[in-house]
Amino acid sequence: MKASLGIIRAGPSSTPFIFNFEVTPSNPLLSDKTIGTQLTLIGGGFSDNVSYPLIIEGNLESGTEYSYTKQVQIESPLVQNPDPWPGVSVYRDSNSPIMTRVNETFSIMLPPTPLFGWGWQNIDLSAFSLLETKTVPGSGNEPNPFGPNAFLFKALKIGTFQITLYVPSKPPQQLESFDIVVNL
């Protein structure tokens, strides 16, 4: 199964942008199931609020071929999912302490910053576990082409700790220190 997105490619090539989906007779796409794939549009560009043709092609189980065109708009993923980890508390202000419990997760999110995003450190390495980082938009939905600015931690032991996030330049800049109280 494939889908061809009809947007203009810069340069002499007019090759369409074809998204291939991993659907085979041994790995069929069943009813009500979804499948996604990503493609880097080399030389391509698009605009907001503009519709582009998407040609969807494939075969049904019966062998019947199908091909039809949908008009689609390309939405910003930043608008779609403003919370990096749904259901997890998000802390953005280093002036307010983070209150959590052992084995619970919490996240810290800061504005996008140039260079390579934010780094982080804490003195007691046994107090927290970094589970995941993400590169997400700022609170005003401004794009973040730089690097990680959202961090998902898990508290490992009781106590009062501090996590410092910084821009990894020399010397480090924009230090943001979060006080964290971990209860049982």
Binding site: F19, G36, Q38, T40, L41, G43, G45, F46, I56
Partner: peptide
């Protein structure tokens, strides 16, 4: 170039 993700159902 931009990375685009398409999800179908």
């Amino acid at each position: 170039g931009p990375v685009v993700e398409i999800t179908l159902k």
